[in-house]
Design a binder for these strands. Structure first.
Length: 343
DNA sequence: GGGCAGCGCAC
DNA sequence: GTGCGC
DNA sequence: GCCC
């Protein structure tokens, strides 16, 4: 089989600093999240920079002539600029080294696993003395978590599954995801009360690898309970992570693919598709623009902040239009810069 | 110096 | 109500 | 932490 040329791999030789720094800032973000809610915005800031670096085409050292130069990059401010320069000059970031000493650092990598947030990890550390992944696996085997408050059966099952799966990188190549997506669409379309269903997320954006499969389903509320039951019946997921009347999250197939389905009204289809297609950066940019215009945007539509009136949401096109933006095709909804104001 | 999204589901 | 993921 |  012929593989398409991968841009990332072409430039990988020049972006080694980006990768290393992206990882460090990701780890620092985890440290701050672990420290508690008062640090959560700091954590977000570090996570943002981590993502910016991961997506950057050229090596960060090309912009690292001065703090001022780095500061021009969105998401990077004075403090992180200094840390980037420190890293390029010394190979280390002192603040990071100190965080490592201060916190149960090996434990924090578990935050990369779905279901493990800061609070959960603090409880595990403080109540059971768990310091790393191995400790946790052992504690789970010995059923030591069962007594803990807030650790119900479903949560434990999900934790065990996530822990097992996390070892293998579960992102699949686009083509495989497209095949699986088409298969699921076919099955769900066979359900009578489903008025409409479409793929969203990174699969719709045609990202080169896809982590999970997102779908938006249109149905009236009175049919939703039955639809969810029917979906489970025809798809026969390996696991159900969460099920309600507006949301279904499950693990499907031998590859253990996570599938998330949102159930919405027909008039919310556009806003739900826009929202769940992402990317995250693109959404944040849209939110900011909406706010500048006195509007608020979410998966249910665009609203006038003052009156609360719903202004749009049936189609994506009308939403971009309302915001005074050119329509952006899903494939191009990559970052904040992919949003263009109309002239 | 204030805002940084806010909602559904598990518990 | 809190934690978590999205 | 960053942005406005």
């Amino acid at each position: 089989m012929v593989h398409p040329i991968n841009k990332q791999s072409l430039s990988s030789g020049k972006t080694t600093h980006n990768r290393a720094l992206s990882l460090i800032f990701h780890k620092m973000a985890e440290c701050y999240r672990y420290m508690g809610t008062e640090e959560r915005f700091r954590a977000t800031a570090y996570e943002n920079v981590s993502r910016v670096l991961a997506n950057m085409k050229e090596d960060i050292s090309e912009h690292a002539g001065s703090v001022e130069e780095l500061d021009e990059i969105g998401g990077i401010g004075e403090s992180i600029a200094e840390k980037i320069i420190e890293y390029l000059q010394t190979g280390k970031i002192k603040t990071f080294e100190e965080l490592k000493k201060k916190l149960p650092f090996d434990l924090l990598e578990l935050m990369d696993i779905s279901g493990f947030g800061p609070s959960t990890l603090r409880t595990l550390h403080e109540k059971l003395g768990i310091n790393n992944r191995d400790d946790l696996v052992k504690a789970l085997q010995e059923n030591k978590l069962n007594k803990l408050k807030g650790f119900g059966e479903r949560k434990l099952t999900n934790m065990k599954r996530a822990l097992k799966m996390e070892k293998s990188n579960n992102r699949m190549p686009l083509q495989l995801a497209e095949e699986e997506g088409a298969r699921l669409l076919r099955l769900i379309k066979s359900i009578k009360a489903v008025e409409k269903i479409a793929l969203a997320g990174s699969l719709r954006r045609k990202k080169e690898t896809v982590g999970d499969i997102d779908m938006v389903l249109v149905a009236v509320p009175r049919n939703r309970k039955r639809i969810v039951e029917e979906i489970i019946r025809v798809i026969q997921p390996q696991k159900i992570l969460a099920r309600g009347t507006t949301k279904l999250s499950m693990i499907v197939g031998d590859r253990e693919t996570q599938v998330d389905i949102r159930l919405v009204h027909d008039y919310e289809f556009g806003s739900a598709m826009l929202y769940f297609t992402g990317s995250k950066e693109h959404n944040i940019r849209l939110r900011t623009i909406a706010k500048e215009r006195g509007m608020k945007i979410n998966e249910y539509g665009i609203f006038d902040v003052k009156t609360g009136e719903r202004l749009a949401g049936e189609t994506e096109e009308e939403m971009y239009e309302l915001l005074g933006l050119n329509y952006v095709s899903p494939e191009k909804r990559i970052d904040a810069e992919s949003v263009e104001t109309k002239d």
